[in-house]
Each structure stands twice: as C-alpha cells, then as structure tokens.
C-alpha cells in the first residue's frame, strides 16, 4: 500500500479551494450556532442562494462576474432576513425544523421545471466564472508545487483567493466577537432572558448573527461554484449542512478559529480514508464480495460519522481545544 500517495492526496484535499469554502461556511455557522446559539440547519440554503445569485446573474442575464458576486451576497443576506424575521424568536428545535425546511424548499424550487429558465433546473448552470479566471496572475502553462502537492495555475489562483477570504473573514469575526457586540451575543446564547432584563434587544442580535453567518455561507457557496464551474441544486442538499456542522463540532463550537482547523482536518481525514480504502480495494488487500469501489465513497462517511459520535461523546469541546468552556 502506498501510504505516501495517500498522504499527498490528503494534503491536497486539506488545502484545496473547496476546503477553504467549507471553512468559510463553517465560520458563518459557528457565529450562528456556536456564538448566538441559533440551530440553523439550513446552511446549505445560504450557500445555494450565494451560488445561484452569481450563476444566474452571469449565465442567464449576462451580467458581469463581480455584479454576480454582489447579487449572490445580497441574496444570502435577504434570505437570512426573510428566514430570520419570523423564526429567530422560536425555540431552538423549531428554528432547526424551519431552517431545514426552508433550505429544502429552496432546493426543490431551484430544480423545478418552471424555474428552469433562470436556474437551469436539474441541469444547473455553467460558464459564469470565466471573468474570474481571466484575472489569474499565475502563468497557466505551468504547474506549481506546494510542498509535495502539485496544482495547476487555475487551482492555485482560486486557492490563494479562497484562503485569503478565510483569513479576512476570520480576522473580522475575531474583532467582532471581541467587541461589546460580541459580548452581547455571548450573553444572548447563555441566557436570553437575562440579556433582555439588561435592556438588550435579543431579537436584533440574533437576526444580525443569522444574516452575517448567512452571508459567509453565501461567500462559501460562490467559492464552491467557481471551483466546480457549475451550480446544481443537488450540490446543496442537507448533507452539506451536516458536513459544515461536523466541521464546526470537530474544531470546537464557539471558538473563533476552530472552524478553519475543523475544515482542514475534516477534508484531510475524508481524503486519506478514501485513498487508503481505494488502494486496499484495488490491491486486493480487502476482498470481501460486498465491498468494492462503490462502497469506498460510502464507507469513508460511515467512518467520519463514527468519528463525529466519538468526538461528541468524549471531546464535546472539539478536537483541538484544550480549554474547556466553563459551564454551570
């Protein structure tokens, strides 16, 4: 078995643009879930809104790429307001139900026949990222080595932009959470009634957290769409939301930088198990009749699910946080 190859695959996944996108989505969800205590199970919906805002503007209406980005972000913010106004007053479990329903409704609308002129229906939309790739400063004829990982110029360009966005979002969030605004948000999660008794408008803070987190989800959706150069409704199913939750919990909910490490570790592990399992199947090390190449993709998620359960049971504060949050 070629463990070195598996290691390189894992490393490639860990620094891939998609990982940066998931890190952004997780930063947003961490603000909502980890700091404001909002159990938003519709994060994939925010990502879809961002991605379709861009893709529809460019591929259907012929707008520019940057206009598309602006539309995508505005749409994510609007989705947050629309979803939040009636629901953030609800108890956590009802909020979870309504957000997951909203994101699924959105997905079915996007893939419906009558929306096809604007969303491409089940075929999705393509060709909306040319303008972005045209700005690529790296020579397209070359490949670039980052340690042992070799990537092409387009990937490198998106990688740089993606991780720069992650860094910028993380810095902004840390500053925000250290401000008095962050202090109020933390009090809202710990004891809403107490925050109200001190004159804090709890509703406004929850709504703000939902919208900011949602816009970060929108940025993540745009980044993923640009990476895949394709938007498709089924790329934004609820499983995406649960991946983002796994990342947040892996890193440690309520820690500002944890989603970034969580995203890296999540994709590193997914890719490494995939690579190892695939090699095991190919080389005949594993030769059970029921376990073939088709099962590899599923098996790695089974393993990730198991790992998540173990983390939640044994390290609820996250894998990479050592300081326990004080609880009463």
């Amino acid at each position: 078995m070629d463990l070195a190859a598996a290691g390189v695959d894992a490393l490639r996944a860990a620094i891939a643009p998609a990982t940066a996108a998931y890190a952004l989505a997780a930063l947003g969800l961490n603000l909502q879930f980890g700091y404001a205590g909002l159990l938003n199970l519709g994060h994939a919906g925010f990502m879809a809104v961002g991605a379709y805002g861009l893709a529809t503007t460019v591929a259907v209406f012929g707008g520019g790429f940057w206009l598309g980005v602006a539309v995508g972000l505005a749409a994510a913010a609007a989705f947050g307001l629309l979803l939040g106004m009636p629901t953030v007053r609800l108890r956590a479990d009802y909020l979870a139900i309504t957000t997951i329903a909203a994101s699924e409704i959105l997905r079915f609308v996007l893939r419906s026949g009558w929306a096809q002129p604007w969303t491409g229906g089940v075929y999705g939309l393509q060709r909306f990222a040319e303008e972005f790739y045209a700005l690529n400063p790296f020579a397209t004829s070359n490949n670039y080595a980052i340690g042992p990982v070799v990537v092409d110029a387009r990937t490198l360009w998106l990688m740089v932009v993606g991780w720069a966005l992650v860094a910028a979002a993380a810095v902004l969030l840390v500053l925000l959470l250290r401000s008095p605004w962050g202090r109020v948000l933390s009090s809202v999660r710990q004891d809403e009634d107490l925050a109200r008794s001190l004159g804090k408008n709890v509703f406004a803070y929850k709504l703000q957290a939902l919208v900011i987190g949602g816009v970060l989800g929108g940025v993540a959706g745009i980044l993923l769409a640009v990476d895949q150069q394709n938007v498709n409704p089924d790329n934004y199913g609820s499983v995406v939301t649960f991946f983002v939750y796994t990342i947040v919990i892996l890193g440690g909910a309520g820690r500002a930088m944890a989603p970034v490490t969580g995203a890296v570790v999540f994709w590193l592990v997914i890719s490494a198990t995939d690579s190892v399992l695939r090699q095991a199947v190919d080389s005949g090390t594993v030769s059970w009749s029921w376990f073939g190449p088709q099962q590899v993709g599923v098996a790695r998620f089974v393993l990730v699910g198991l790992a998540l359960m173990l983390i939640v049971v044994f390290r609820p504060q996250g894998l990479f946080t050592w300081r326990r949050r004080v609880r009463t």
């Binding site: 933390s186 009090s187 710990q190 009634d193 107490l194 004080v326 609880r327 009463t328």
Partner: peptide, 11 residues
C-alpha cells in the same frame, strides 16, 4: 433580577 440567580457563567 430573577428568583434563581442568573449569572453569565462563561464570562
């Protein structure tokens, strides 16, 4: 204030 003391324990 509240009958059962409410402090923000994490702060």
């Amino acid at each position: 204030t509240f009958q059962l003391t409410r402090v923000l324990a994490e702060m």
